[in-house]
Amino acid sequence: MSELRFSLADVAGVRLAVSPANETVMSMWALANPIRYAVHLPWIDRARVTLRRPEVADRVRPLVGLVVPGRWLPDFLTPAARPNVEMAEQLDQIAATPPAVVVQDLLSTTWQKPLSPFGRALLADPGGLLPQVVDAVRVWYDEAIAPDWPRMRALLDADVAYRAAQLAESGAGRFFEQLHPSLRWHGDRVISDDTFERDFDLRGRGLALNPTVFTEQHVLWNLLEDSLPVGAYPVRAVGTLWEAAASPPGDPLARVIGPGRTALLYLLETALTTTDLARLTGMSAGNVSQHLAALHGAGLVSRSREGRHVRYRNTDAAAVLVRASRGG
């Protein structure tokens, strides 16, 4: 069980953001354990082919040596993300990690499993080998994550918008209890029903929360009291991430309303914007807008405004159609 103790400043400092570094680093878990991460098999199959290329395998080896199944990640690999952060900025954050912090973060992971050979080498020469780690993260992002980043980003951004609305409407206590079944708010703290046994005093630093597609069971916290407080939680609707943009051949719903509109209904089990849907389906924004207008006029999607964004979601009538088309 972990506990995070909040002051009023910490409650006000809860912030949500998407972290491309988190997705890049944590994706290694899925690659190492495809059965546990079966929802990502379409990505895993492609990523394994990528990792077998010698020019990629050689440069990514330091990251493979640090992301070991069954052992916690060193905090410096998952830096706190601000809203709209880009990968280049997070790579700069990792590169700027002081050698003493690299050592401290590595040692904090060893109670579960010993360090890999590269981990031991980094422990002995953090200043000299950290650039190899940064290069490994950069290469893996470019080769394995970037091609799918638009669809990942759309799903993650939609979750951030949804959670931000929950936080504004419900307050911190209810927000954390809705964030994940393992969390509950108790007085001035969040209690996390996990196996990590961390005890954090946030000390007015607030808390960065990052949805991630590659965490499936728990909310993961940074390990050390001195690290910037960060939690990574499972994104909503991850099962839609690798769905084909078009409806499958012979889909009965597609024969009635067309494949484009059917693809949108399959995705709108979670609230998404026109931009999100364009990224996920590969359609143009104009085409998506035309389909949404027709679906809204037919009472199959609802829309709501959140600041500058309009989000669409299936109505109950659409949910019935989708279930029937899928044989449910």
Rank of each mutant, 00 (worst) to 15 (best):
L228E: 15
D251L: 08
P150H: 02
S247G: 15
A168W: 00
T240M: 09
L183R: 06
V133P: 03
G13A: 11
Y312A: 02
D201P: 04
P83V: 09
N314F: 03
L223D: 06
W149L: 04
L202D: 00
L268E: 11
P181L: 03
T97D: 09
D276K: 03
A278W: 06
A298V: 06
F196D: 14
R308H: 15
P229L: 04
P42G: 02
L183V: 00
R138M: 11
R138E: 15
Q90V: 00
D193S: 09
R82C: 06
R326T: 12
A146W: 04
D135G: 04
A47E: 01
L264D: 02
D276L: 03
L115W: 13
V213L: 13
S289M: 03
L321W: 05
P117I: 06
N287W: 11
D157P: 00
N222G: 12
P99V: 01
I94P: 02
Q178C: 05
V102G: 09
E169V: 10
L183C: 13
P249C: 08
H40Q: 03
R15D: 07
S182T: 13
H180R: 12
T275M: 08
Q132L: 10
T50H: 07
A121L: 11
V137I: 12
G327N: 05
L91K: 09
L224K: 14
P42Q: 01
L267H: 12
T281F: 04
G173Y: 09
Y162T: 01
A95N: 00
L4W: 10
S27P: 10
L66W: 01
G282C: 08
N287H: 15
G65N: 05
E143L: 08
R174E: 12
Y233T: 01
N287G: 13
Q104S: 14
N287M: 13
E169C: 00
Y141Q: 12
L155P: 01
P181W: 04
F214A: 11
A32F: 02
T262L: 02
G171I: 09
D157W: 00
V14P: 06
H186K: 14
A271W: 00
L51W: 10
L8Y: 09
A324T: 14
A324L: 15
A285S: 15
P62Y: 08
D193Q: 10
R305G: 10
P249W: 01
A9F: 14
Q90L: 04
H40R: 01
A124L: 13
W242Y: 07
R279M: 13
R326D: 13
P83A: 11
T262N: 09
A30I: 08
N33M: 15
R61E: 15
F196S: 11
M1F: 10
R120P: 07
F76M: 07
D142P: 03
V230K: 10
I94K: 03
E23F: 07
A318M: 07
G127P: 01
L207H: 07
A124E: 15
P54N: 12
